[in-house]
Simulated scan of single mutants.
Amino acid sequence: MSVSPQVTVVGECVADIFAAPPGVDRSGLALRMQSGGGPANTAVGLARLGTPTRLLARLSGDLFGRTIRAHLLGSGVDLSGAVAAGEPSTLAVADIGPDGQAAYTFHATATADWQWTEAELAAAGTGRSACVHAGSLALALAPGASAVEDFLARARAHATVSIDPNVRTALVDTDVYRRRLPHWCALADILRLSEDDLRTLRPGVPPAAACDDFHRAGARLVVVTRGAGGVTISLDGRRADVPGVPVEVVDTVGAGDSFTAGLLHRLGAQGLLGGRLAAATLDAVADACRYAVRVAALTCAVPGPNPPWARQVDAMTDGAAGDMAGEAAGDAAGDAAPPAVR
């Protein structure tokens, strides 16, 4: 396969806050922070897989923002287009359930991530990128959401556009997502949703019928991730399923973002990014999804949003995600593997 072309990611960088394991002092709640936010997680995943990746983000100068910046740079993400923001960082407090799923409480009022202006995004531009990816809260929260949408509309002139709605009803009313979704489909060549997103956005609608609606609105490729159930692919109405990879789940935080990173990385390596997916076939997309499923499985094998490096994915065989968990956890403890193992 060819070298992956550059991808630009637009969106938020969030400080994910988790409860730390109980220590000697049990009189209070100990917390730990990991760098998160759907777009930032995707950018980290892409860079660690070897795709040249620019992240357009508004990074606060507070303690959380500085920690996030170091994490991104350590993973090889290009921050030359990022904005040094005066507002505070967004916080997302994660409550991990027994099944590894996270429920979030957000502290996001007037924080840095949502304040995009047309001038900031125009100054950053898309560079040489063959693909622009956006989504999550930066595409849904005012005042910056409309500026991000306009940026994607301009990017379509030369780049493939990828969107992940990453529905967060704790912050954005469901009706906002439903109203904006047809416009996002008109902007997107690739639409990635989780099964939960689909149920929220199109309740009671069979997945195949929902995919057909998204195609009619403009999205050529729709990918629905179903956790352990695998992935459903719909390319212009031609459909296929890709099975999941067994893994001992620590938590599922960032798994969907890592999947998107794996998908875009593999599509880029196949030479399919850079336009309207004209050369894409169902077999090629299925291959990309099989790779992406492995990336997501390795993310589930470690705490928090910590995507694997390319060598970990390459060393993993189908069904062997559990075998790689110890190694992945070792890299997660250090947050970023050394450059020699990228």
Results as ranks from 00 to 15, higher is better:
M1E: 15
M1S: 14
C13S: 15
V14T: 09
A15D: 00
A15M: 07
A15K: 08
A20F: 08
A20T: 07
G23S: 12
A30K: 07
M33N: 03
P39I: 06
N41K: 06
G50M: 02
T51Y: 09
L56Q: 08
R58P: 05
L63H: 12
F64S: 04
F64M: 14
R69K: 10
H71N: 15
G74F: 06
L79D: 02
G81E: 00
G86W: 12
P88D: 12
T90V: 07
L91Q: 08
L91D: 11
I96H: 08
P98D: 14
D99A: 10
G100W: 05
Q101Y: 08
A103Q: 12
A103N: 12
T105N: 11
T105M: 12
F106P: 11
A112Y: 05
A112Q: 00
W116Q: 00
T117S: 15
A119W: 01
E120R: 01
A124C: 04
G127L: 07
V132N: 05
H133R: 03
H133G: 00
A138I: 03
A140G: 09
A147D: 00
E149R: 02
D150T: 12
F151I: 00
F151E: 02
L152A: 04
A153E: 15
A153L: 14
R154W: 03
R154G: 13
R156T: 02
A157Q: 12
A157M: 11
H158C: 11
H158L: 09
H158D: 11
A170C: 12
V172A: 07
V176M: 09
R179P: 07
R180I: 01
P182C: 05
D197K: 07
L198W: 05
R199L: 13
T200V: 13
T200D: 10
L201P: 10
G204M: 05
A209L: 10
A210L: 03
H215W: 04
A217M: 05
R220A: 07
V224F: 04
V224M: 05
T225D: 05
G230T: 08
V231G: 02
V231D: 00
V231F: 02
L235G: 00
V242A: 09
P243D: 15
P246L: 01
E248N: 14
E248G: 13
V249F: 08
A261P: 00
L264C: 08
G268V: 13
Q270W: 03
G275K: 03
A278P: 01
A280R: 04
A280Y: 04
D287W: 09
C289S: 06
C289M: 07
V293S: 14
V295N: 01
V295E: 02
A296W: 06
A297C: 04
T299E: 05
P303C: 06
A310M: 11
R311Q: 15
Q312C: 15
T317K: 09
A329H: 15
D331E: 15
A332L: 05
A333W: 11
A333Y: 10
G334L: 14
D335S: 15
A337W: 01
P338G: 12
A340M: 14
R342P: 00
